[in-house]
């Protein structure tokens, strides 16, 4: 099975600080790490390879230092990886990101399965996986919590978590899935993997290399504009009702009507 795993470098949540006046993240001095859900995506790819054989490639769009994320993925056991990197990619929203990633994946060749984490913990959109599937013209199953290979790897049976429960879905490959943290426990790197990662040649592909139109990438290709970012305020109130249960119910109904809820 030929598997591509899309990952993203995000700020390390344990070292992040906020600029309270501007309401933004302080990026200076913050280490970058692989998005937590993406470890589950990598593990899903490696576990499938262990089970049915094949090759796991990993790709990311980001600045040149995103090579560190690829090296870490190689230390975990993926076969190879690339960084799609170009100044023109800066400021990309999910529309531009999925365009860029789809171009890169098509450049790399045909894959049986593309795996993404459910969402990145910095933007929290959960749009890149599904958007990428549309761009690639393949089916998409999001929020995968369990996975089984059917028909020698031509099909997958997936448990997709929903708000009210779960669906069991069968999908023919090629397909794209996004995975939850509950799918697996990511493995630790190996010494041989770490040594291989250190020496690995990690190609950097530019917009030109993947044949992307500059009007569709980065800020230029992004209709989304973030106007402001604010910290939410919590103005919830608490009130204890007293008296017999019947009186409390009457009082509660009165208050809910007053608040326009009933």
């Amino acid at each position: 099975m030929k598997i591509a795993v899309c990952i993203k470098q995000v700020p390390d949540a344990s070292t992040v600080r906020f600029d309270k006046e501007k309401g933004t993240l302080v990026r200076e001095g913050v280490e970058s790490v692989i998005n937590p859900f993406d470890y589950n995506a990598i593990e899903a790819g490696l576990a499938l390879k262990d089970q049915v054989g094949g090759e796991v490639s990993v790709l990311t769009m980001g600045p040149p230092q995103a090579q560190d994320a690829i090296r870490e993925a190689i230390s975990l056991g993926v076969d190879n990886g690339i960084v799609v990197s170009d100044r023109a990619f800066a400021g990309a929203d999910t529309l531009a990101t999925t365009y860029t990633l789809a171009k890169a994946i098509n450049k790399l060749g045909a894959f049986d399965l593309v795996i993404c984490g459910k969402q990145a913990v910095d933007g929290d959109t959960a749009q890149v996986g599904p958007g990428l599937a549309v761009r690639l013209g393949i089916p998409c199953v999001t929020c995968v919590d369990d996975l089984e290979v059917l028909e020698d790897g031509r099909k997958l049976r997936l448990k997709r978590m929903c708000e009210q429960g779960y669906d069991i879905v069968e999908v023919e490959l090629p397909a794209l899935i996004t995975v939850l943290a509950s799918l697996n426990i990511p493995r630790v790197p190996s010494l041989k993997g770490k040594m291989r990662a250190k020496k690995a040649d990690i190609p950097m592909l530019s917009a030109e290399d993947i044949g992307a139109e500059t009007s569709k990438v980065g800020l230029a290709g992004s209709p989304t504009q973030v106007a402001t970012t604010t910290v939410p305020t919590f103005d919830a109130k608490r009130e204890m009702l007293e008296g017999e249960p019947e009186e409390q119910v009457d009082a509660l109904i009165g208050k809910l009507k007053e608040a326009g809820i009933l």
């Binding site: 630790v188 790197p189 190996s190 010494l191 770490k194 040594m195 250190k198």
Partner: peptide
Amino acid sequence: TEEQEMIVDLTRQITEEK
């Protein structure tokens, strides 16, 4: 050596995470 540093990093990670 570089390899020895890798051993330290890896075993420390296993200790902390596992």
